[in-house]
Computed example of a mutant assay.
Amino acid sequence: MIDETGKLPSGIMEQSQKLLDFAADYIKLPESKEMAVTFVDNKRSHELNLEYRETDRPTDVISLEYKPDNEEFFFDEDMELPEELLEEMDPFIGELFISIEKAAEQAQDYGHSIEREYGWLVVHGFLHINGYDHYTPEEEAEMFGLQEEILTAYGLTR
């Protein structure tokens, strides 16, 4: 975890680490998996959102899921490796970028604590990296339901 801004509220990095560990256990993610979290300002969030999502504005959380492929490893070109083996060989699953300015704005807009907002963003991004989405009503119900389950079980309620 990195705070590029130097302005992350006290205790948020520790809370985020504990919550990510809790969420990983909750969805039974293998302990070998790793991800990066970087706390950024709106300027950096805007740049990333434009680069990765072609959206010309800052956003609260950007999730970049990493999926290894055969090219990442030095094997014979004709060799096909099972997905499970590729995942086992490379523990890095992705990275999150969280705008501290958006987190503060949204906590105020939604009327809940800054801790709850960071928790929501961390778990939301984490679930995206682990294959959850909310493009359809069914996906949204599944992802947001699981997200709320994790936050409630952890103790970060509204």
Rank of each mutant, 00 (worst) to 15 (best):
E77I: 14
L121V: 01
L19W: 05
G119H: 08
K43M: 07
K43I: 01
N42F: 02
Q108C: 04
I2V: 15
S99Q: 07
Q106H: 13
H134W: 01
L81Q: 04
T59L: 06
G119S: 06
Y154F: 12
G111N: 08
P82N: 12
Q15S: 08
D78W: 00
P137Y: 01
L8R: 04
L86M: 08
E88I: 09
M1W: 05
V122K: 10
G111S: 08
L81I: 15
A153E: 13
F39E: 05
L146C: 07
E139I: 00
A104H: 07
A107L: 00
I114H: 03
D25M: 02
E88D: 15
G11T: 02
L81E: 01
L19H: 13
F144R: 09
R44F: 13
G6D: 04
I100M: 11
Y110I: 03
K7A: 12
P137K: 10
E65D: 10
P68S: 11
E117R: 11
L29N: 14
K28E: 15
T38I: 08
E51K: 13
Y66Q: 07
N70Q: 14
E149R: 05
F22M: 03
G125W: 03
D56H: 06
A36E: 14
K67E: 06
L127C: 09
I93L: 05
D3M: 00
P91F: 02
K102F: 07
L151K: 08
E142A: 07
T157K: 10
D90H: 09
L50K: 15
T5F: 03
E140F: 01
Y118K: 14
K43Q: 11
M1Y: 07
V37P: 03
L48M: 08
E142N: 03
M35H: 07
T59H: 10
D56C: 04
M35C: 03
I100C: 09
I62D: 04
L64G: 12
Y132V: 03
M1T: 02
R57Q: 12
K43P: 05
A24H: 08
D76H: 15
M89G: 05
E148A: 03
N49C: 11
Q15V: 01
L50I: 09
E140M: 13
I98V: 15
K43S: 12
H134G: 14
V122G: 08
E138L: 01
Y154G: 05
T55Y: 02
F22H: 07
P9H: 00
F144E: 15
A104E: 15
P68L: 09
V123L: 04
D60I: 04
K18Q: 09
T55G: 06
Q108A: 07
R116E: 10
K28P: 12
G131S: 10
Y132D: 04
T5Y: 02
I12L: 00
T55F: 02
H112G: 13
A23P: 05
P68I: 06
P30V: 00
G11A: 05
G94K: 08
P30D: 07
E4S: 06
E139D: 14
L48F: 11
F73Y: 07
L48W: 02
I114F: 03
F126G: 11
I12A: 01
F74C: 14
E14R: 11
D69N: 15
E54K: 14
L156W: 02
E65W: 03
P9W: 00
E148K: 06
R44Y: 12
E115G: 14
T136N: 09
S63T: 04
I129C: 12
E117W: 01
E72V: 11
